[in-house]
Amino acid sequence: MDDTGIAGYGGYVPSLRIETREIARIWGEDPDEIENGLGVRQKSVPDLDEDTATMSVEAARRATDGEDSSRIEAIYVGSESHPYAVKPTATIVGAAIGATPGMTAADYEFACKAGTAAIQTGAGLVSSGVADRALAVGADVSQGAPGDALEYSAAAGAAAFLLGDADDAVAKLEGTTSYTSDTPDFWRREGERYPQHGERFTGKPAYFKHTINAGQNLLGELDRAPEDYSYAVFHQPNGKFPVKAAHQLGFTEEQYEAGLLSPEIGNTYSAASLLGLVAVLDEAEPDDRIFVTSFGSGAGSDAFSFRATEKIEETGDSKLRDDLTDVEHLDYAMYARHKDKIQEE
């Protein structure tokens, strides 16, 4: 697949935030312990009229700005919070960016790695010549039950990548590899409002095992060492796991800090590693190598190696930085209203 790459990219994070301390206050937890334990200071909250489809469109518009959308022949949207149980999000994105009707589309679900699965599929279609261009989106408005550990981090965001020929790319795809097993560390049954999780079981046998194996396999396949990379991006369910995984793989803070957004936006699930990639692409210079590994519960990791091209200098700012700085804070009551935790008659 080294004949393909990222022709355009865009991220979107809603402007609303709630601090983890505020959530801790409601549930009688120690705010310092929660904030420091998770390494998450605040998380993003979708506005009342935002969902996975609207954020996917916002990210997709940024990714395709100035591009001819009719060239997009495949759209895959990965999420664990699609607005419909049956009816694709990808068609909404396709119609909103003007890519319909000459395209294929589908929604993906693989917990937090559905977006990277979409990138692999899209890149495969472009590489094989089936699609001129493909759009891959990872987006979520994830839910955590009130008072559950997930509530401190479950956030909202979207990232979109326009995949095309390597010659058009701002970053070439050098390689990708996956590590997958059947591991029930986190799940949501059909019709259930909030997911369940295996608490500490989500750590070592799930997140770390898959992330580390996928990462090591990719480095091995490409015959690379961590020091060959300018940036390293991980799935970031909190502020601690990705740092620990980075160190285990041999990456340094200098390499992972630019792509570590969870302390300021929380866990954006399917968008988490991808928003990290967007942030890194905003900073990257030609020839910089970027290492990315996602993780999705259930469980699997997709690892990627990208290399920025000269075209990276021509792309404008993705506007993600504005989303990260221009924010408005909610108290828990307003947050509960925004997350539909107050049931109206």
């Binding site: 506005d47 009229d49 935002e50 609207t54 469109v57 909404i92």
Partner: peptide, 20 residues
Amino acid sequence: ACFRRMGEGGGDGVIYYGFK
């Protein structure tokens, strides 16, 4: 213009999206 949820045909109906 941005892309937002405008309404829905009840809790189990079609979701209406549009511009704000």
